[in-house]
Computed example of a mutant assay.
Amino acid sequence: MRTLVYFYIIDNDYHCQPIWTIKMPHPANVLIDDLLKELTEILNFTLYGLRRLKDNGYVFTPSKAADEILGSYKEEINPVETFVEEIIVKGTPDDRVLHKNIGEAFRAWCRKEGHNSLSQYTQNRLIQNTKDILKMKGFTIDAVRSNGDRGLSGIQLKTFPQSNWLAKTDQEEGFDIDDM
């Protein structure tokens, strides 16, 4: 046995238009009973929301709570975007950061932030994602090559005054984001 619940919207001419139908198996009748008890409030809430949407030119109002949830989801799916926002800043055209330093900073940042799915990021994929995100944010970056090392110009790592310091420290002592 199935229970059908129909929700209708009535326009100014008293025409009924179905806007929502729920088909539930028999065990969910308890839920249906609860919904039926609140049906008037649900309909009023829906009509109020529809009126607000119509008054706003059928444009949804941004929600801070929804934006926060979406931001958390994006960070979980692509932590590179959050890494770029937190660690990389615009520099002068003379500023350069080596690809390997971006990789080390990213891995250290991921360890600190608790991102454990680093195996999906090869160095090439990380650099490409970083370049794409920087370009979307309006950064002017160029690929550079010096002494066999590749890097990006026009950016700096936020926590270090000079990219050369990171390259030297990374080779000699190891890089740990907790030291920042």
Rank of each mutant, 00 (worst) to 15 (best):
D13T: 12
Y14K: 10
Y14E: 04
H15C: 13
H15Y: 09
C16P: 15
C16L: 15
Q17H: 15
P18A: 02
I19K: 14
W20F: 15
I22S: 13
I22K: 10
M24D: 13
P25H: 14
H26E: 13
P27K: 00
N29S: 11
V30R: 15
L31E: 12
I32S: 09
I32K: 12
L35A: 06
L35N: 03
L35P: 05
L36Q: 11
L36G: 02
L36I: 04
L36D: 03
K37Y: 06
E38F: 00
L39T: 02
T40D: 13
T40C: 15
E41T: 08
E41S: 11
E41I: 05
N44M: 01
N44L: 08
F45K: 12
F45W: 05
F45L: 08
T46G: 02
T46I: 06
Y48T: 07
G49P: 00
G49N: 00
R51S: 13
L53N: 10
L53W: 15
L53T: 07
L53V: 11
K54H: 06
N56V: 08
N56A: 12
N56K: 08
Y58H: 12
S63L: 14
A65I: 04
A66Q: 14
D67N: 10
D67Y: 07
E68D: 13
E68T: 05
I69F: 06
I69S: 03
I69V: 07
G71K: 07
G71R: 04
S72F: 10
S72E: 08
Y73A: 11
K74L: 14
K74T: 14
K74E: 11
I77T: 04
N78T: 04
P79F: 01
E81G: 00
T82V: 03
T82Q: 07
F83D: 01
V84N: 02
V84D: 01
V84S: 04
E85R: 10
E86S: 09
I87Q: 05
I87A: 02
I88Q: 07
G91K: 14
T92W: 04
T92I: 13
P93A: 12
P93S: 09
P93T: 14
P93W: 13
R96I: 05
V97L: 06
L98Y: 00
L98K: 03
G103P: 00
G103E: 03
E104Y: 00
A105T: 08
A105S: 10
F106V: 13
R107D: 06
A108E: 00
A108M: 01
W109L: 08
C110E: 00
R111N: 12
R111Y: 09
K112S: 00
E113S: 03
E113A: 06
G114H: 14
G114A: 08
H115F: 07
S117V: 04
L118F: 01
S119W: 01
S119V: 10
